[in-house]
Design a binder for these strands. Structure first.
Lengths: 322, 322
DNA sequence: GTGAAAGCGCTAACAT
DNA sequence: ATGTTAGCGCTTTCAC
């Protein structure tokens, strides 16, 4: 910038004004400066600007896995909103490991991101306390923070969606409805179990409930065990997208009514089409990011807990008779 | 840092030494400094460090869409390699728009990223010349740069894969093989057309070749037109993952042998399973990022053009008889 | 083993 | 309309 200034025969500040489009520069001078910038191939050093202004024009996004279709859709929505605010997105995958989540968040903070969007992997977020106090806004998405941390939260209606799934199967005549959920330590899995239980009421049979990581071997064993019961399930509710796919593989040809939590591409092309409770990952990302920019903009109102609706999409598998 | 120094009763520089783990600090002093850091909740300002050192420990990644399964897999691979080098990843979606690609790249450059990984949307990359000259390494992935730009490139064997797909269908007795490709202006689409033509040899019939964006209405019209010919195709080769899925939807129940470029989740669960030419998005990302870090590390050897193999996965749809 | 001073490239505040 | 000065928080250099 100094070189540009001397090349254009003006002071540093004038170059700064031109670069930032600030008013109060004579058009002729401005043009001269622009020429100098062009011929020297100058481009402003954002790091220095950041250091001075305190704003990085960057937000940090921690998700479970940037390659997961659910989270990558959310990622895209975050990016699209960020770009309208002139912000870039630093993203990282926690891989469902609390330590990695923490490390990513703290790294983002040391880079002085303007705000954070976090899909938490762990349930202890006390490490965030000092950053929040220091004024870095954070929004939790998909899952709430651990106890004692008061931040904005954007969640899907997990329990309601699960209840709707079960209600749909009940309405189609099923009474023996199994639930395959993810590890109960994961918030969403626990919520969906709650919704399942509420909707099943007195029909609950614990032998029809299995909760663990979505591994093919494990899911196949669970299904085999349930189907070998004297009164086997006639329908199954799977607790997330990966479990749905794993269960379909495990079922092989066996036809069982099925409703899955989470929509996925090609659900309509399978035979039968897969009935799902569709979350709105793009909506989650968009709402969270808009809220984040309100906070960055200085909105210090009480923390908000937003819940987004889910919707049932009937495609055939959930309408099979018992 | 100043506060920490005075709290610990030492000079600024000593705090810096402790923070950076530099040698030459008395253990007792170091401990006192660490206590001060702890109690003040201090964390180093990376922006200032960057300003001073010139390294941002950040790389920029421009892909078509962070939400696309192919590119999000690549994104994850880039992240995983970057993290082993202590780097974070700024990612952005070009949405297949050259202007957006350019803007993202230049924004990343003005933030002084240590390196760039680009899936180009446009074919004019002269705007990168000055950045490359300034020493910012860039790796192009999936598609090569426009003319006159000499950078490292990591591509899949598009033509070879397409030829293998057609060869597979020929081996199963097909002679009337259609090709549904993406816009021919996209490098990969053009390469795959080349491979298709080479493998078809004298069997080429231009009425069986259609290239345009993967929209359901258009793909359905193309297929309908081809299937209404006096000698309709008995097989189709689709030029990318989205076209494969769109073609499957457009075909509805009609059984036609099919091989698709790009693997996708659930390809094995459809009936019949979908035979594909599988690219290795994770390999592309990993190889590109490893090469990038070699460049960042000071390797100024001649630019490399790397081609990754693809492999055919037979699942049923490509083995249907004519 | 420790510290003082200079300066990275920029912008904010205050001249002129 | 333009220029001057100070300083963002850190690392580098060199002195103690």
């Amino acid at each position: 910038m100094k070189d540009v200034a001397s090349a254009a025969g003006v002071a540093l500040k004038t170059v700064s004004r031109v670069v930032n489009g600030e008013p109060g520069v004579h058009p002729t001078t401005a043009e001269r400066v622009r020429q100098a910038i062009e011929s020297l191939g100058y481009s402003r050093n954002e790091s220095a600007r950041v250091l001075r202004q305190g704003r990085t024009a960057t937000i940090g996004l921690v998700i479970e896995d940037v390659a997961d279709p659910f989270y990558s859709g959310l990622n895209r929505a975050v990016e699209d909103v960020a770009i309208t605010h002139g912000c870039l997105v630093l993203s990282g995958s926690s891989a469902e490991e609390p330590a990695r989540e923490r490390e990513l968040v703290l790294t983002f903070c040391s880079r002085r991101v303007d705000g954070l969007i976090v899909v938490p992997a762990g349930d202890d977020h006390t490490y965030l306390r000092s950053e929040l106090d220091a004024g870095t806004p954070a929004i939790f998405v998909d899952r709430p923070p651990g106890p004692g941390i008061d931040v904005d939260t954007v969640l899907s209606d997990n329990a309601g969606g699960a209840a709707a799934a079960v209600g749909h199967l009940l309405a189609h005549g099923h009474r023996r409805i199994a639930f395959l959920g993810d590890c109960p330590s994961i918030y969403t899995a626990a919520e969906r179990l709650t919704g399942y239980r509420a909707a099943m009421g007195g029909l609950i049979d614990d032998r029809l409930v299995a909760m663990a990581a979505p591994e093919l071997v494990r899911v196949r064993a669970d299904l085999d065990r349930m189907l070998a019961l004297p009164d086997p399930p006639t329908a199954v509710f799977t607790g997330n997208g990966r479990l749905t796919v794993t269960a379909l593989r495990a079922l092989g040809g066996r036809r069982l009514a099925l409703v899955g939590f989470d929509d996925f591409e090609l659900a309509d092309l399978l035979t039968p089409g897969v009935t799902v409770i569709a979350q709105d990952p793009i909506g989650l990302g968009r709402v969270a990011t808009e809220l984040l920019f309100r906070r960055i903009g200085g909105d210090h109102g009480p923390s908000e807990q937003i819940q987004l609706p889910v919707r049932l999409i009937a495609r055939g598998s959930g309408e099979l008779p018992p």
